[in-house]
């Protein structure tokens, strides 16, 4: 039981990160119906920006502390957002309105480009991230002596995710950007006729998604203490799986999907085999899609005849 609890805590932390990345996929998909393949790379770039900023601050004589961590987190947001904006502007906007697979191929190309760009610029080796917030507290102790530990960082990750989710929900429901975004999702042509700047709305959606992915990247860098240029692919793949699992187009669905994927991964690794954890994740995805083809929170779709 204690073991299970420990794994569940680890899984939820991981899941919160997947959820944050998944939101970017789901929002972009909701608005322009494309899989933004390069999104995982934005997350990876977020991790690298954390490494770079921490190294820079270290060189200037600021050792990592909670304050530094938060400063780096905030400072990374404009940089990853710029990536999100630039990717959309360069690789996707020229292809808007052309056939379905063209932007997808462009996105795959972008993903390959960014991955190798970072490898070229920053090197292929693993980058260590200094431990900034060590320790945690013991949640409970079993009779056998097994202790359930919660790391401070896990609390930071989960708290940050909750804050971002609340902020995002308010943004989508209360602001004019949110209204424009939802309108474009429903019917882009009509939104355009009503005077909504569709291009700007799409660009902002990408920026928002990239900001969240960047935050996720920074937090993962702190959490795992190591960063590699190839990290974006698998994380992106799982986050997209999470978005589909939760019901693509649904923001709460993306978070729910992320948490589920994180849990499945952690528990499967703990009880079965760590090698096959990704196989387990995809098998669950297939099963869910067979029995509920639109995902957990996706609106059931009646085929329009």
């Amino acid at each position: 039981m204690e073991y299970f609890l420990q794994q569940a805590i680890n899984g939820l932390t991981l899941g919160a990160v997947y959820g944050l990345i998944a939101i970017g996929y789901t929002m972009v998909y909701g608005i322009i119906g494309m899989i933004n393949f390069a999104h995982g790379e934005v997350y990876m770039i977020g991790s690298f920006i954390a490494v770079i900023l921490l190294a820079l601050l270290g060189a200037w004589g600021f050792p990592p502390s909670l304050a530094i961590l938060l400063i780096v987190l905030l400072a990374a947001i404009p940089f990853t957002s710029a990536f999100g904006w630039a990717i959309e502007r360069v690789a996707y906007r020229p292809l808007r309105g052309s056939f379905r697979l063209a932007p997808l191929i462009s996105a795959i190309g972008m993903s390959i480009f960014l991955q190798n760009l970072v490898q070229f610029l920053q090197g292929a080796r693993n980058k260590p991230v200094p431990t900034a917030l060590p320790g945690g507290f013991t949640l409970m102790e079993a009779a056998s002596g097994f202790t359930v530990q919660v790391r401070w960082l896990q609390i930071v990750v989960v708290a940050m995710t909750v804050i971002l989710m609340v902020g995002l929900t308010l943004l989508i429901q209360r602001t004019s950007f949110g209204r424009a975004q939802r309108a474009c999702e429903q019917d882009m042509k009509m939104a355009m006729l009503l005077g909504i700047d569709v291009n700007a709305t799409i660009a902002r959606t990408f920026v928002l998604g990239a900001a969240l992915a960047g935050i996720a990247g920074v937090m993962v860098a702190y959490y795992y203490n190591v960063v590699h240029f190839y990290d974006g692919f698998l994380a992106g793949l799982k986050a997209f799986t999470a978005a589909v699992l939760g019901g693509i187009g649904s923001v709460p669905g993306a978070m729910l999907g992320g948490l589920l994927i994180g849990l499945i991964e952690a528990l499967w690794s703990a009880y079965f085999s760590i090698e096959y954890k990704d196989v387990a994740v995809f098998s669950v995805l297939v099963l869910v899609l067979i029995f509920r083809p639109t995902g957990i929170l996706g609106r059931p779709e009646i085929e329009k005849v």
């Binding site: 190294a55 940089f79 957002s81 990536f83 904006w85 502007r89 920053q122 090197g123």
Partner: peptide, 24 residues
């Protein structure tokens, strides 16, 4: 300006492996 934001950390700063702590 966007290019500046994109390039500044990733291109402008290179991390160098110098033992335990990364140099720049």
């Amino acid at each position: 300006f966007v290019a500046l934001a994109v390039a500044l950390p990733i291109v402008g700063v290179r991390t160098v492996d110098t033992g335990a702590v990364l140099g720049v």
